[in-house]
Structures are given as C-alpha cells and as structure tokens.
C-alpha cells in the first residue's frame, strides 16, 4: 500500500517527508503526529514536506499541513513545502487556501538549499 505510506528520511538535521499521492484523512492526521515525534527524536531543525506526487489538496489536507508547519515552528524547526504540482497550485489558490506562513520550493534540492541558507543565518545570528 504505497498510497498510505508516509516516508520519513533524515538527512543531517533535516527531515525529508514524502507524502503519498492520494492519502486518506487518517494518513494525513497520522503524518502530523509522525513528523512531530520524528522532529523531536532526531533533534531536527528543518522539515521538507515533499508533496510532488500529491494529486489533490483539499481544505482538510491544507489545514493539517499548515498546522504541522506551525507546530514544527513552535518546536524551533523550519518547514518548506516542496514540489506542489501546477494544477494543484491553481486549484488550491482558487479554493482559497494560501499557505501564507509556509515557505515553498520548486523541488527538494531547492528546499534543501533554502533550509541550509536559513539555518546558517540563524546560526550566524545566534
């Protein structure tokens, strides 16, 4: 059941989470929990949510993702939403969901670059 599988990979202090293409609500809810505990367990500083295979983003999915990003921020982490499909971006925007507080990137490579830069800035200022 690859569709229900959320893969979580740790690269240095970044967690790369790949969201399945058509997840049911339970999978989406569990993803939030899974991510938060993984962040804590690995003392990760960055999170990349790779949604490049996701075909539909509805308000439930959007809410859960936005919440997760906020929760990760409260835990001191920075999140990037990566690889949203063009058709999904149009639809999501029209639906009225803007992910205003969320960083976005064209693909995982660019998300990694963004996180490295941002985390470096943080390190500099600290």
């Amino acid at each position: 059941m690859p569709n229900g599988t959320v893969s979580v990979i740790k690269i240095r202090d970044i967690l790369l989470v790949t969201v399945p293409s058509d997840p049911d609500d339970i999978t989406v809810s569990e993803l939030q929990e899974q991510v938060l505990y993984a962040m804590e367990r690995h003392s990760a500083k960055g999170l990349i949510l790779d949604i490049s295979t996701v075909e539909t983003v509805d308000s439930f999915f959007a809410r859960t993702i936005s919440e997760t990003v906020k929760m990760v921020a409260l835990m001191g982490g920075l999140s990037v939403l990566s690889g949203m499909r063009a058709c999904v971006a149009v639809t999501t925007t029209q639906l009225g969901l803007t992910f205003e507080q969320t960083l976005t990137a064209l693909d995982v490579d660019r998300a990694m670059d963004m996180l490295s830069v941002a985390m470096d800035d943080k390190g500099d200022s600290a």
């Binding site: 539909t56 308000s59 439930f60 499909r85 058709c87």
Partner: peptide
C-alpha cells in the same frame, strides 16, 4: 484537462467530507 480534473476532484473531496 489536468487542472480542471484537479478542480473537480478537489470539490468532490470537500463535499464528500
């Protein structure tokens, strides 16, 4: 087209939920 398909599927997702 792919964008309209996404629109329709997303609407269906909202209403069935």
């Amino acid at each position: 087209g792919v964008t309209d398909v996404t629109r329709i599927v997303t609407a269906a997702s909202e209403l069935t939920r």
